[in-house]
Design a binder for these strands. Structure first.
Lengths: 313, 313
DNA sequence: TTCGTTGATGGAACCGGTTGCAGAGGACCC
DNA sequence: GGGTCCTCTGCAACCGGTTCCATCAACGAA
């Protein structure tokens, strides 16, 4: 396993020059640099991550902190972040903090260069302070002063509600998400506004955990309202609704329109059913981009990015 | 940020002794060790991972390679492995290899101490060779000579089929999984055997990707067989079936029994419906245990563990 | 011709741990 | 009392890079 001295020897230069050449420091004569790079390639040299990390004082590791992996909303975010991390030569480690977020941060803070924080719920100050030790990017939530990227689902939920109302749904149900969810607050407000402006009657149910079981359980309450359209906080809740409605013989979408996401709508061939299309991978990619820019000093903390969320169907 | 010399100074010993004390080498007098540990605790000392890694020549990083995160079967495995890794003081990095598994291994092999390989499909020799550079544990698949842990779903599928037959289902459908899936081969064989022995007629459909869309799409074919019970390869396929059956007005389970997993059965209140209960987290935990034992030299490669899978309902 | 600059390079310290080896000191045996 | 062995400890080398600083050659200007 060749090391930097081997490369230097083959190229006929010192370790120092070899290091500079391979890192493109610009202080090396072009011709020398070419020689070094060629030598490295010939030997199949791969830098030792640990040594580099020790010398540079940076680990090259980013942690993405998620509350759970059981939620299909989070996994694309991880996948997107992972892809970008790989491109940037960084390792991504996934930390699941069911409850003990603070503990997870403390343990990891010394080990990583930065955090991607997916913390849909919980106290603002707590979340903010957790990421204070190292650069952090908050995903799908906004807190003043923290860099963040969110999918603008609030607008999308508003649009979707407006559209439903325009199609004649005068009674609409919104099934709310988990208690304390930042996105749920945004969405509830947006749906309320849209319904009021369109003159539709809105019932807000919930809170519900983002699971299909919760969707099943909330079904009777939804039917009781006599609504003709239901907008669930999460796709998983929507799936639960669809399943339960099926076993109860309710005709979807004739008797009740259930908005979920495009793949579901399409697979089931549902008509007259609007759906919001959140690109989780893009969320992950953007978050990682924001973090690397911050690590490179190209960005100040505090930048807030909103990704538009299309409404389909 | 305290370092080992600080700890040593406070404890009144040398770096060497401090290091040994903190790593429990046993060469340190008990009383000295206590002093060092106390000093470390007081200073809030956290060892520098990079330095340790460089000195030891091991990275303390394990990679878990999964084909995708979009499949709810894999995520609990990751969660379980993650939990165990944390206990063992190891970092876990998640590598997603949609297609390019070999590439993922090459890139990572220098960076990590070992692999957890989740590769349900694909060629045996390819999978086996991928993990050859570093210790590896294969998850939910068996290949001769490789350490592995599998959920014994084949037996469970057999039991489940037997039970369905015993309850009077003389026509059963098995909806097969993705092409080339190792588990699918095992399950198909087990289901075939059980059906034959019980004298039930079995139709095997598929192959199907493990998605709920595939479940929706296969529904007409299932209904066409006239079967009264269907056993899908994956929960996601089962959910698709249930959704599509609901929109078609088929009464589940009266007209057709769909076996899925306990949470689904329970949430929907389905009766007469057996379900297999795979503990994905246990799979992940066991895999990580096997790997750490191998890294510590306590185990030889090649050990194969099978976890029993209960059939409920 | 000589001096000051600039650009390229090398020497060596350093990052923060681990570990081989040697040595100090005490216990035990002859 | 002297020698041997054992236990515990410290010194210093080492892991493989990065980077500060000094050096040196070449070149333009005075």
């Amino acid at each position: 396993m060749p090391d930097l001295s081997d490369v230097a020897a083959v190229a006929g230069v010192s370790k120092a020059t070899a290091s500079r050449a391979l890192n493109g420091s610009g202080l090396v004569a072009a011709e020398t640099a070419v020689r070094v790079v060629a030598a490295a390639a010939r030997l199949g040299y791969v830098p030792n991550r640990a040594a580099r990390e020790l010398a540079r004082g940076r680990s090259g590791i980013i942690a993405i902190v998620v509350p759970t992996l059981d939620n299909a909303f989070f996994t694309p975010i991880i996948a997107g972040a992972q892809a970008r991390a790989e491109e940037a030569g960084l390792q991504l480690t996934v930390a699941v903090h069911a409850l003990d977020a603070a503990g997870a941060f403390d343990r990891l803070a010394r080990q990583v260069d930065g955090f991607l924080v997916v913390a849909p719920r919980g106290n603002d100050t707590l979340v903010a302070s957790s990421g204070s030790a190292k650069p952090a990017v908050l995903v799908d939530r906004e807190i003043d002063g923290m860099t963040s990227v969110v999918a603008d689902t609030a607008s999308a939920f508003g649009t979707l509600t407006t559209r439903l109302a325009a199609e004649g749904h005068s009674r609409i149900v919104y099934v709310g998400g988990p208690p304390g969810s930042w996105q749920d607050r945004q969405r509830t407000a947006a749906v309320r506004d849209a319904a009021r402006q369109a003159g539709s009657e809105l019932t807000v149910l919930g809170p519900c955990p983002a699971t299909f079981t919760a969707g099943v359980e909330v079904t009777p309450a939804v039917l009781e309202t006599g609504a003709t359209a239901v907008v669930p906080y999460a796709t998983s809740i929507g799936l639960g609704l669809l399943l339960a409605l099926g076993t109860r013989g309710v005709d979807v979408p004739r008797d009740l329109v259930v908005s979920t996401e495009p793949t579901v709508i399409e697979a089931l061939g549902l008509e007259h059913t609007p759906a919001i299309d959140v690109d989780g991978e893009e969320l992950g990619r953007t978050a990682m981009d924001l973090l690397t820019r911050q690590l490179d000093g190209q960005d100040e903390p505090g930048r807030q990015v909103r990704l538009a969320v299309p409404v389909r169907g």
